[in-house]
Each structure stands twice: as C-alpha cells, then as structure tokens.
Nucleic acid binder design. Sequence first.
DNA 1: TATTATAAGTGTTTATTATACACTTATTGA
DNA 2: TCAATAAGTGTATAATAAACACTTATAATA
Lengths: 257, 257
Amino acid sequence: MFKIHFINFFYILVTTSRKLSLVVLGNMNSSLPNTYNSISCIPVAVDCIIFGFHDNQLELLLIHRGFEPEKGKWSLMGGFVQEEEDLDVAASRVLQQLTGLDDIYMEQVNTFGKVTRDPGGRVISVAYYALIRKATYNKRLVEHNNAQWFSLYDLPEMIFDHLEMVEKAIEKLRQKVKTEPIGFNLLPPKFTLPQLQALYEAILNEPIDKRNFRKKIQSLNILEKLDEKDKAHSKKGAYLFRFQEEAFEENSTFNLY
Amino acid sequence: MFKIHFINFFYILVTTSRKLSLVVLGNMNSSLPNTYNSISCIPVAVDCIIFGFHDNQLELLLIHRGFEPEKGKWSLMGGFVQEEEDLDVAASRVLQQLTGLDDIYMEQVNTFGKVTRDPGGRVISVAYYALIRKATYNKRLVEHNNAQWFSLYDLPEMIFDHLEMVEKAIEKLRQKVKTEPIGFNLLPPKFTLPQLQALYEAILNEPIDKRNFRKKIQSLNILEKLDEKDKAHSKKGAYLFRFQEEAFEENSTFNLY
DNA sequence: TATTATAAGTGTTTATTATACACTTATTGA
DNA sequence: TCAATAAGTGTATAATAAACACTTATAATA
C-alpha cells in the first residue's frame, strides 16, 4: 500500500503506510522542455550551532558521539529534514529536541554538500546558528543527549565538517551583530552594560574601549535603564538595562563599528 | 539489478543499472544512540542567479518556462543535484549547461526549503549567484534554452520563490562587493574607470561621486593603468585598466564604503 | 572605623574617513 | 572653429572612530 504524493514528468514521490518512503527517479526524456537530466533524492539534514554566553565567554553546545563512525568525537546537534517539514521548522525542531527551547532566534548559515563529507553516506546538511539564553534551556534534556558546553575558543575535536560549520557561523554572527540588535538573545532580559560589552568582546574576539562602547550603544536609544542594580559582579553594582524592541523598530538603525 | 551505495543503521542507498535510484527510508529504532528520528530523502536542486553587466545595467539571465505549472513565467536556471555530485559542482554544472562557461565565480546564497515552495512537489533548492562576463557566454546554448537577459530592476514575473532568491542574491552581492574585489568578474579584462564606477552604481543601485570613487579605488593599488584608451564610449576616450589580482593578494584589504 | 581593593561610571581631544562640490581637457562631428 | 560630450582632476568640510585617565560606590579587611 502506498500513497502518491506528487507526480510529474520527472519524478514520483510515494509514501507507504509504514512510513517507509520511496522516491523513484528517472532520466528525463530529452524532448522535455527544460534542462534537467535526472533527479536524485538525497537525505537532507540540519545542524545547529548553538551559541550561549556565560562568564564573559561565548560557548557552544555540542553532543558527544557515542557510536561509530567517529565515536568519541563531538558533534553539532543535527537531524534529518522530514518529508513534510519546512527546512526552518526542522532546524527549530532539532534545537528544541536538545534544549527544550521554542521560539529561538536562528539564522541559516550555509549548506554543506560535498559527497564525501559524511563517511556514513551522502548527506547534504544545512547549518543554522541559534542564540539561546543559558539560563533557560532544559538541563535534563541536554544531559540525556550527552551534550556539553565548550568555550568557542577552546573546542574539542569535532566530526566531519562541523568545525567549518562553526567557523562560518561565527563569521556570520560577527557580521550580523554589527548591524542588527541580535546579541540580546544571548543575555537575560535584564543585563548590565559591562555584560553587554563583554558579550560583544566575546563575539568579535577583540577588546572594546569602555567609554566608546557605552557612548555608542546609548546613542542608539534602544536600552531602557532600570533603577535596579546587579551586585553579583562588583561591589559597586552595575545598573540593569532592558532592550527596547519597540524603540528599535521605530528608529531602526543599528551600527556598531 | 542494483548496486548498494551505502548502508548503515538508518538508510540504504541503491542505484539500478538503468540509472534509476531508490532510497529506502525507515524510522529509527529508538534504542539507537542518537537523536535522529527518521530519515527522509528529498530532491535537492540548485538554482543559479546569473548576473551580467551591460550598458551600465546589471542584468539577470532567466529561462522561459514552457510547461506547466506556471507555464509562461520566467525562472532561474536550475537542476537537481546528482547522487555522486558535490553541491558546488552541481551549481557549476547547471551554470555551464546554460552558458557554456566554466570556472566562474559563484557564491552560495541561501537554501530554500518550504514544503510547498514548488507546487510540483517537495524540492529543497540551494541558490547560488554567478558573476559572468557577458561577452563570453555561449549565445547558441542560451537561445536553445529559451533564456533571456533582463535588467535587474525590471524583472518579469518569476516562478515559485525565485524572486526571493534574486533579492537575497543581490543583497549578498552588495555586501560582498564592498569588501572583496569580485566586481571585476562582471567586466572584461580591460575596463575603464567610468565603467567600473557604473558597475558599482548598478550593483549598489545608487549614484556615486566620481572623484570620491576614483580616489578610493586608486588608493587600493589594485589597478594597473594601461597606455590604451577605450574610445567607444566618448570622444576623449577613457584609459583602460586591468585588475591586478597579485597586488590584491599581498596588501589584501579592500573596502568600498 | 579607616583602609584597601574592585569594578562601574563618565568627556574630551585627536585622527581618520566620508562627503560635497566645479572646472578643465581631449576629441569628434557639425 | 564651434559645439557637444564624457573624462579627468583637488580641496575643504563634516562625520565618525579612536585614544585616553580619573572619580565613585561598595564590600571586605585590617
């Protein structure tokens, strides 16, 4: 028993009742009016570069690979795109499976498609990065998945091309963070300016002048200064701020260096 | 008769002698030591946003769709990724099929993976842009493919999400052209400064001050001024220049606005 | 309770980069 | 020889980025 999902000149997609799927491919008849030669069907995965920020360090959540090939190495959290699942939805689902988190800021990084990139077989993988607040994820799930946080600048050996994925992700994050207010996704709702500066220093991996930074960030008028202070990190205590999304939508220019 | 390409816990890929392919998918046994649930296999395509520059205009090469669905609309040149073909190679091949050109500057733009993006069936498509010299492509091939050039700022109705692909591509091109010397890929080996300026104006879609542009571009020391003049576009004639790739590799900073 | 140590908070000056702006030159065709 | 066209050239001003050091609040300690 099977169900035909679609059929056209080039391909037929069917699903059997047992959720097994077949894709039947054929060479195109050259009289057909386009340039396709044949259709192959390839497993497509998404891999998540999950960024967190803790102790003034940018961190990545990686899972320990407990099986061959490349047993013992570390890996990005990944999963296959389902037949009836949007690509972006797959990325969110995979993130959710590891962290329990929904509605997280994610960006597509790049698609990796070398035939031999996964020695287990041909898989095309779309890399996404995610910015999460470390306080909010589900610790039990993460433990259950044998996942751990690593400092971005002190990563363990990773499988396949996952290091390349991470490098592309951080590059893209660096670009983005300069022109859009996305860094806040890594901080708690209330944060201090020293924290925010440390975050930018961690992402850009370079020191920033305190006075210049504060001048610049405050000139954007997107921060609401609260009357509370955070005294956890200094005797004096630092004022807490909140990111005003609404204020940003209106004036909506953002440019840090 | 069929050949088993690879087999593991999750999937088996086989090819028959007639070049028909089957991918057999199954739900993962939950005792297996990772987070995957099941593997689906999805047709993956590449679509090429082919940029050319002519008459001070940025242009796109599109093909006329002569069959349903969306017959009569225009489309990016696309094709399916083959089983044993790297993703980047697929993009080059597809470009080559339409233009006859090899060894062309291409960049991956984004991967589009909404389930319903192609009404003919689920296809994940990876968009690439290409920068070609209009003088060099194979006109006969292009004609044979029912392809035509369109001004980027006067595009016809396009199928599916191809307009979105184009928009993302031009956005990415704009970014890239400001920090890397890739614009030269759209110009003949010898070009004039007015031509180069017009190219940047076309890409960025904004006028540029002549003196400021020349000051900046010449300060980069990546152009070799030739003794020849191009008299096709003015009575006075404009000096021809050549891009010195070597000079760029050495000093290797490039920043236009 | 006075002292010390720590991180928060604050302005101004200088350097660099971007922007604005108009006339002269070479050449062809009328 | 005159007119039309596009190429070629430099300077002044504005905006932005970078450099830089002391004061303040507080908790812990002597």
